[in-house]
């Protein structure tokens, strides 16, 4: 089928098989390898993308579900030497170990902070409850979110 959408700010028109998972479409067809697969069942959050700004599991969607919508993956955030404040906060607080959960985590945090720039602990946990991490025990991830909030505020940034 024909597919028309916006990925990381760029317009994409392509054709995909009807039953192509959004995850495979992004990873394999578009080469966006930051989108990871951890379970394929909507349980781990490694495949999180932002769909019209909302964090969703791309393993549970078909490519066709993305039609006409705005998709954001981690590839669109920051560059080497110019990290996005959330990325900077994750790096500096040690919220990254193996890094496999990290792309999904960061996108979930972005979606949270876009909605709620000063989340309390409960809001942070609620936003990240669908993102599993087996390495960090989440302690430093919570710290990283708070640090990201502080960086964003101190820089007067809008994200």
């Amino acid at each position: 089928m024909e597919l028309h959408l916006f990925v990381n700010g760029k317009e994409v028109t392509t054709s995909v098989p009807e039953n192509r998972r959004a995850l495979d479409f992004l990873r394999k067809d578009l080469g966006l390898k930051s989108v990871k697969e951890g379970c394929g069942e909507g349980e781990c959050g490694a495949c999180t993308i932002l769909l019209d700004g909302k964090a969703v599991c791309s393993c549970l969607l078909f490519a066709s579900d993305l039609a006409g919508r705005r998709v954001l993956t981690l590839e669109s955030l920051g560059k080497e030497g110019h990290l996005h404040p959330i990325q900077q906060a994750f790096a500096e607080t040690g919220a990254v170990q193996c890094g496999f959960c990290t792309p999904g985590m960061i996108l979930s945090v972005k979606s949270l902070l876009d909605e709620n720039p000063s989340p309390d602990d409960e809001a942070i946990k609620k936003a990240l409850e669908g993102n599993l991490c087996r390495c960090t025990g989440y302690v430093k991830i919570i710290e990283a979110v708070k640090r990201a909030v502080a960086i964003i505020k101190s820089q007067g940034l809008m994200i």
Partner: peptide, 19 residues
């Protein structure tokens, strides 16, 4: 210390085997 592999990992650029 900031992890030496932090940058590539927060950018989603680290290459795991399936990547």
């Amino acid at each position: 210390l900031v992890r030496s592999d932090a940058s590539e990992k927060v950018l989603g650029a680290a290459k795991y085997v399936d990547d």
